[in-house]
Design a protein around this nucleic acid. Structure first.
Lengths: 135, 135
DNA sequence: CTGTATCCAATTCGATACTG
DNA sequence: CAGTATCGAATTGGATACAG
């Protein structure tokens, strides 16, 4: 049976209200780069440089910032091997794996339907050219 | 069988790369307010004022902007009844319903685990006080 | 190789005020 | 009731340079 938003809210009253921890997690996890880093790690351990290449377009600043947040949240594990040159590995924790398991179907759907969606969005954009959320 | 990110990428090469439409959709759908608006509508049709109350903390500007984007994307339908005072209803399209179906399990998980996550995050924050992604 | 620090541009967002 | 317009503050994010 499909879960409903109302059921989520009633089982955890106050969920997703302004000051709720769920909002914080939502911001970390659903952030522009958070999703992509988690998705990249869902296939296995990656090093800093590999992650940088895997997540196309991310800057070093954002990679560092995102990794620090996700690590602090206990979703990503950082393992530093004491070697020269440095060798650092990032991987999902059990919690992180649990999360990505639920995230991947969503990403798969987006991958399948993105074409239709932006096509539609651009057609509308051509007509009404007021400010929109991104492009 | 669980879908893997590698499988998603191989079935749609170039997915989630910098200039790919998937990135645009990701930004719309996983945006701070996009998720919450879609989730609110997943339980049924809502009017402007109801949405404003349902999505705690959203400003009128962001509600308008988010609704315009999601409507343009074909995820949300807008129905205006010609009455005085105005009566406008927002609901999910079939595409939108399809999307939220895959989104709700993720939200349910976050609702369940948010407590543990921010607790951990704050403990770390107390130690290392450099700039972090949000708080 | 693995990051951090700094500067600066662009964007986001909220508050407020206003219109049909 | 259902929005739009404008403004300014805060945040984001990228480029670059630099450090362990």
């Amino acid at each position: 049976m499909p879960v409903s938003f109302a059921e989520i809210l009633s089982s955890a009253p106050g969920s997703f209200s302004h000051a709720c921890p769920t909002r914080t997690v939502l911001d970390h996890v659903m952030s522009r780069w958070g999703v992509l880093v988690l998705a990249a790690l869902s296939d296995g351990t990656l090093r800093w440089g590999e992650l940088r290449r895997a997540v196309d377009g991310i800057s070093e600043k954002m990679l560092g910032s995102t990794l620090r947040t996700l690590t602090a949240d206990g979703l990503v594990a950082r393992r530093s091997l004491p070697s020269v040159p440095p060798h650092v590995e990032y991987s999902l924790t059990d919690l992180g794996r649990d999360l990505t398991e639920r995230m991947l179907p969503l990403l798969a759907w987006i991958s399948d339907n993105a074409g239709d969606i932006v096509e539609r969005g651009e057609a509308v954009a051509a007509v009404q050219d007021s400010s929109r959320l991104d492009v």
